[in-house]
């Protein structure tokens, strides 16, 4: 079986799904079911006392999905750590998708604060999946403090632009010793397939599904693309030929004996 293994735990699907931006909880539930995903991200917010809405968790079967709380909204390490601890106190397993995004425009992750928070959270026993820019050296620093995956972005979150960071993601994949999950910016199933063909271990998608005219159908499309990309990667892609430059033979000496 070609399972995705994170921190020793096995997952059938290589597609992680976000639960934000859906028109309704019912539609969200239908979409994650159609995605075939095993890991579902959620965010933590203050309860709105005056207007308590339909609880998201009423729609997610906790036996079927691993709930992966994120730290969205955190602007520095301390806030992210606080959110992670609260998630655990709210009954989640100690898994956290670490996001520290002080930049309010592109929501780009802060590498320095992310590293600080990761170090603290790993020591507290969290299984940390940090959202990062596609920076190979940052990925190495994070691996050293003990994160369970790295989650480089394909493009700024919510932009649907695809794998704009392809070359750097390729370096991260080549050098990583933990699973690489391409997160953010994947706007179409073809983008997800591209990341998987490149050798990513998984991808994470939210906006592209939530804003589709038919979210469950789009989720199913992503599921197929992720599988197709993974299979193509395992099968060994027919590679583009680099024409070798003509030059004198280098191994003639092997025959002149």
């Amino acid at each position: 079986m070609d399972d995705l293994i994170i921190a020793g735990r096995s997952f059938r699907s290589r597609l992680m799904v976000g639960t934000g931006k859906f028109a309704s909880n019912a539609q969200m539930a239908e979409t994650i079911a159609a995605s075939g995903g095993d890991i579902v991200t959620v965010a933590l917010r203050r309860v709105n006392i005056d207007d308590q809405q339909d609880d998201l968790l009423n729609h997610i079967d906790r036996d079927k999905y691993l709930l992966l709380p994120n730290t969205s909204g955190a602007r520095d390490a301390d806030e992210a750590i606080r959110l992670a601890r609260l998630s655990r106190a709210a009954g989640c397993e100690p898994w956290v998708k670490l996001e520290v995004t002080p930049d309010p425009y592109y929501l780009l992750p802060d590498p320095i604060e992310t590293l600080k928070a990761a170090e603290v959270l790993v020591k507290e026993g969290f299984i940390v999946l940090p959202y990062i820019n596609a920076d190979p050296v940052l990925a190495k620093h994070l691996q050293e403090v003990g994160v369970a995956t790295v989650m480089p972005l394909g493009a700024p979150i919510g932009t649907n632009k695809g794998l704009k960071t392809r070359d750097n993601v390729a370096i991260i994949i080549e050098q990583a010793i933990v699973p690489v999950v391409v997160d953010a910016g994947l706007g179409a199933p073809s983008h997800a397939a591209e990341a998987m063909e490149l050798g990513a271990d998984a991808v994470m998608v939210n906006t592209a599904m939530a804003v589709a005219a038919n979210p469950p159908m789009m989720a199913a499309a992503f599921a197929k693309a992720v599988e197709a990309g993974r299979e193509a990667y395992l099968a060994g892609l027919g590679k583009q030929q680099n024409q070798a430059e003509a030059s004198s033979p280098l191994t003639g000496f092997l025959r002149n004996k």
């Binding site: 976000g18 934000g20 933590l44 006392i49 609880d55 979150i157 953010a184």
Partner: peptide
């Protein structure tokens, strides 16, 4: 969670209550 029933509120307490919402 076990602490919820053991705490008696005092005047001036500050309480934050959070729950899960949709997020990516």
């Amino acid at each position: 969670r076990e602490q919820f029933s053991t705490i008696t509120l005092q005047a001036g307490d500050t309480i934050e209550i959070v729950n899960f919402v949709g997020g990516g």
